[in-house]
């Protein structure tokens, strides 16, 4: 009897520095196993998938993020260069070609983000409350400068948003960063709502254009 298997492609979560590993983690499109595809010192963390264009559902987006968080929480993994949702390769060969072609930039990026995490901060004005936005933004920058490596501005997509930033934070500075956020909450508690999220893979601090020939 001939069994026809669906094409298995590789859904890629990110790139790490290191060798062969396997993780029992739920992935995108119902995957239950993550493993690595290596090229020299680099490894792409992948799971099998039967489509080249996975649906961008809440469930799949969450699975992508959670898989990256699990990778980041592994003590043996110093850093992960995250891929945006939806990066699928037909097979290991084109993926290895990408790792080979981007090897120097990937290695440099892994060194840059080693031992760090991304934290998100949004400050939202309470309904009907007016605040001096510029002064808040400057104050927050000052409070977080000493406990973060870098900050980046994200879009102010709502009139209520006073600040929307991502911070790159050393893992060792997490407690100090949390304390600084608590200080911001105390200072502006009556007029601003604080939304503090993370740790995330450093999406907003990795600026890579990888040419893909799937």
């Amino acid at each position: 009897m001939t069994v026809i298997m669906a094409d298995e492609h590789l859904y890629t979560y990110g790139v790490i520095d290191g060798a062969d590993r396997e993780l029992a983690v739920d992935g995108v499109a119902g995957a239950t196993r993550l493993y690595t595809v290596e090229y020299r010192t680099l490894s792409a963390v992948v799971s099998d998938i039967d489509t080249l264009e996975p649906e961008q559902t809440d469930e799949n987006l969450r699975a992508h993020d959670e898989a990256l968080q699990t990778i980041m929480s592994d003590e043996d993994i110093e850093a992960v260069v995250p891929m945006r949702f939806g990066m699928v390769f037909k097979s290991a060969r084109p993926l290895k070609n990408v790792l080979r072609g981007s090897r120097s930039v990937l290695t440099r990026t892994l060194n840059d983000i080693e031992g760090t995490v991304e934290m998100g901060l949004k400050l939202v004005a309470e309904e009907g409350v007016t605040v001096d936005r510029e002064s808040v933004r400057e104050d927050v920058s000052g409070r977080l400068r000493g406990v973060s490596v870098e900050e980046t501005e994200n879009g102010l997509f709502s009139d209520r948003l006073v600040l929307n930033r991502s911070y790159l934070v050393e893992r060792d500075d997490r407690e100090a960063f949390d304390a600084a956020i608590a200080g911001i909450e105390d200072e502006y508690g009556g007029s601003l709502i604080t939304q503090y999220t993370g740790p995330w893979a450093p999406y907003n601090f990795v600026d890579l254009e990888i040419g893909v020939d799937r």
Binding site: K122, V124, E127, G155, F157, S158, R160, L161, I193, Q195
Partner: peptide, 16 residues
């Protein structure tokens, strides 16, 4: 419209 989608998500997340 994309901004409205993000704002809707934000207002839900902060409990409003």
């Amino acid at each position: 419209i994309q901004d409205d989608i993000k704002e809707n998500q934000l207002l839900y997340e902060i409990g409003e």
